[in-house]
Amino acid sequence: MKLIIKDILFISRPRFWMYVLGTFLVGVIASGNLFLYGNFTKLLLVIFGVFFTLPANLFIYGVNDIYDYETDIYNNKKIKYETVLQPEKHKKIWLIIVVLFVPFLPLLFLINVPTVIALLVFLFTGLFYSAKPIRAKTKPPLDVVFSSIIYISPALVGFFITGNTNIEWLAVLGGVIWAFGMQTYSAVPDIEADRKAGLNTLATMLGDKKALWFCFLSYFISACIGFYYLGSIAAFFGLVYIVIVLLSLNNSSKLFKYYTFFPLINVAIGALLFFYMFFKSIF
Rank of each mutant, 00 (worst) to 15 (best):
K139Q: 12
L110E: 11
V121L: 12
G198R: 04
L127D: 07
V144Q: 01
I242A: 01
L202G: 00
S148A: 15
F122Q: 02
F283E: 12
V144S: 07
A171D: 02
Y74H: 15
M18Y: 13
L9E: 01
N251P: 08
L9Y: 00
V63G: 00
T71D: 11
F236S: 02
I79V: 12
F216R: 01
S232C: 02
I111A: 10
I244D: 04
L25R: 01
D72C: 07
I134S: 13
V157T: 08
L156R: 03
I47M: 04
L247V: 13
A235C: 07
F256G: 00
K254A: 15
T115L: 11
M205F: 11
L199R: 13
P103Y: 13
N251V: 05
I282F: 09
A155H: 09
F275P: 13
V144L: 09
L212C: 07
Y81C: 00
A203G: 04
A197W: 06
F24Q: 13
S253R: 14
L100G: 09
L95C: 06
I150N: 14
E82R: 05
L173A: 11
L105M: 15
I47A: 00
A155Y: 10
S31W: 08
Y61M: 14
I149Q: 00
G270W: 06
K254I: 13
L105V: 15
I221W: 10
H90R: 10
F214V: 06
L202W: 01
F262M: 09
A118H: 10
G158Q: 02
A187P: 03
V63F: 03
I282P: 05
S31E: 06
A211N: 04
I161A: 10
Y228E: 15
R15H: 13
T184N: 14
N64L: 07
F216W: 10
A234T: 07
W94E: 00
Y228M: 13
R13W: 05
L45Q: 03
V157H: 02
K78E: 11
G126I: 12
G174S: 02
K137C: 06
F283L: 10
L44D: 03
F51T: 06
D72R: 00
I233E: 03
A131F: 08
N64E: 09
C224P: 00
K132I: 09
V121D: 08
G163V: 02
G238W: 06
A136N: 01
A268R: 05
G126K: 08
N112T: 14
A223N: 05
Y61A: 15
I149W: 03
F59P: 14
I4T: 12
G38Q: 11
K209T: 14
K78N: 15
F124A: 05
A30Q: 09
Y19R: 08
I96N: 01
T260Q: 10
K2A: 09
A155D: 07
L108I: 08
Y129K: 12
L246I: 10
F220E: 07
C224L: 15
P263Y: 15
D72W: 02
I73R: 14
S253Y: 14
A203Q: 04
S148Y: 10
A193Y: 11
S186H: 10
F48G: 01
M1L: 14
F35L: 08
